[in-house]
Design a protein around this nucleic acid. Sequence first.
DNA 1: CTGAAAGCGCTTACAG
DNA 2: CTGAAAGCGCTTACAG
Lengths: 324, 324
Amino acid sequence: MSVATVSRALRGLDRVNEATRERVLAAAAALHYVASPSASSLASGRTGVVGVAVPFGDRWFFATVLSSIARRVRAQGYQVMLLDLEQQGQHEDRLPLTSDMLAKRLDGIITVNIAVTGAEIALIDRLGIPLVSVGTRVPGRPVVRIDDAAAARLATEHVVGLGHTKIGYVGRVPPQATGLTTPAHRFEAFTQVLSEHRIPLRSTWVLDSDWTMDDAFRDATALLRRTQRPTALVVGSDEMAFGVMNAARRLGIQVPHDLSVVGIDDHPFSDVLDLSTVRQDVVGQGLAAADLLLPMLRGRRQDPALEQVEPIRLIERGSTYPAV
Amino acid sequence: MSVATVSRALRGLDRVNEATRERVLAAAAALHYVASPSASSLASGRTGVVGVAVPFGDRWFFATVLSSIARRVRAQGYQVMLLDLEQQGQHEDRLPLTSDMLAKRLDGIITVNIAVTGAEIALIDRLGIPLVSVGTRVPGRPVVRIDDAAAARLATEHVVGLGHTKIGYVGRVPPQATGLTTPAHRFEAFTQVLSEHRIPLRSTWVLDSDWTMDDAFRDATALLRRTQRPTALVVGSDEMAFGVMNAARRLGIQVPHDLSVVGIDDHPFSDVLDLSTVRQDVVGQGLAAADLLLPMLRGRRQDPALEQVEPIRLIERGSTYPAV
DNA sequence: CTGAAAGCGCTTACAG
DNA sequence: CTGAAAGCGCTTACAG
């Protein structure tokens, strides 16, 4: 029996006699034989590995997307390489995607809220690696995301509907700092809703944030100490909203009676914290991205302009209350 | 110039003329040349990849360990393969480690709270892959962990010291369900402290749990509805403690005045929730495991009985209060 | 349906 | 310090 026949039998190709295949399979099992991935890759040009690039591997959103992608691609026989681009102690600057990470290593890549640079796109183009983005779009590739503006709109209209007119925002990101679209879209929608309702926007009630709970805690503490403070805060993410609620609690400000807080995400802990929020299906986005990428690994072209927008919805909980 | 010389120059081996090396490096940069990992692996037998096996890739503890391992091994030129062993919808049964995941793919592996089976150990032995475990020990391999008994002891003695005598426990795992050592050690230490202080242990105040917030929420709700209820709960993990606090809040039971709650972990959100807890350094454990594994990848033997026990300490916050 | 052969792109002794 | 050659273990046309 030749190595060619064994190779075909093991990979389930046709043109192999059933009896032959069974003998091969039996022998492979007895000998614990598994084809060498390196040798297969070298010969075939395919690695069976999908890379997932995240800016922070240890945060809920990214860990959840990563895990759901891993589950889905594993079912098709692919392994997942983690590309955690976090740069120690630096919030703005992430590690770049390099040839070392990508070249001949990956059959495809999913970027999760990564603002991919022109140089990186050139690299990925040169390597010819199929790519799907989640959240922030990579130009010329399919994207899976929610409608960030609509999400912020839902949250903002919720507190407006409760009669609030003194409304602040937490989670604006200075536009030059990053190429991420999510923070900008959410903040912009917030301002639009206010202006539609002719509610004045106080610039001192808009807090920049590096999008962490700790940072939101610090900034919200400063804001809530002022004599002039809002009665409601719209917060760009649930994690930041947790920081805001903590700040209020420490200052003796009652949520929701003295201050309404609404987030975006529906983080698994938002229920515990009784946080009103706008739910997005994070697992679903990971699975959708994998489902988009998988056919591309087999050479199927995908519409580069494809935008798969996943649904969102308002979850009213106890952190929001009518204005007095 | 031969391929051998190029190979040596690129990998920084000695016995290469400096001028030659510089020419090679310049040419490689100009051509965007990167050595094919598959070809290198096939020829050298090394893959430059470390596998990290976790039972749930989307939970804080595992995502944090994973991310810190990735950071540390990346600094040495290694990539991380994610082995997420979660089996959809099944809490007890995880996916097994298989040849497909391991054979000729990985230079080493770190298991994070995985109760590795005998068959899996035999496989890993046969493949000769160096292994380091975090949390639950893999027999015959180094382990990085905290002293779980000491952690539970600290938490329990804290509420005992506050004068509580009606004390319950959340997070016992039926011993046959899993080979994990953490839940067993923590519960055992809890019972010991009680008996040392001659505090009776009510079996109805001990809650089994699958170690999730939701499950703890459900079970704690049932417990706290009883007329006879504890004044303090020691909880095996912070995430479960969040569920317990939520249950109390929903029932109108005030934490800490009607009920003290203490967890173990110091989860990033524990500060927000004002949860008293026992802190462990999760990032530190990941880094330590990587530091143990890295030399093994270069052939260094490590003491198979090595136990690196990381420090813990009590963090008193607002969820615990003296008994009335 | 099966086999012989080329080739994937490196690394590693070995010789010089 | 450098090069020629073998070899790592597969997959893929191609021939039969």
